[in-house]
């Protein structure tokens, strides 16, 4: 079952976790060690954040030797990208603005 938007939002609401996820999106697969080097927090903390991202479906991991490699799974964001809701709200707002303008064009 895909993760709920709530789980995704919770997972991404933490700036450190969001930073880790963004880095994996931008730079591709990375080891926990490489991620720790730039995260500004301890390795156990990074591991914990990565586990939470994994639970939300946002990253996947694979073990290779003694290292764990993490990879972003941006498709998990799909649940947040229901563009039809966003656009309906957008166009409703634009229609309001259009009506205002049409009224003013009267004068």
């Amino acid at each position: 079952m895909p993760p709920s938007p709530d789980a995704l939002f919770r997972s991404l609401s933490d700036p450190t976790r969001r930073g880790l996820f963004e880095r994996l999106c931008r730079e591709g697969e990375q080891t926990v060690r490489a991620l720790t080097d730039q995260a500004g927090v301890s390795q156990p903390a990074v591991s914990k954040h990565l586990r939470q991202l994994k639970d939300a479906g946002l990253v996947t991991d694979r073990a290779q030797g003694r290292e764990t490699h993490y990879r972003a799974n941006p498709a998990a964001l799909g649940a947040l990208v229901d563009w039809t809701q966003e656009m309906t709200a957008f166009w409703d707002g634009r229609f309001d603005a259009l009506e205002d303008l049409l009224r003013r064009m009267d004068q």
Partner: peptide, 16 residues
Amino acid sequence: RTVTVERELPFPLARV
């Protein structure tokens, strides 16, 4: 997917 918004506007068509 499709989004539809429709409204009756009390203004002449040329102005719209």
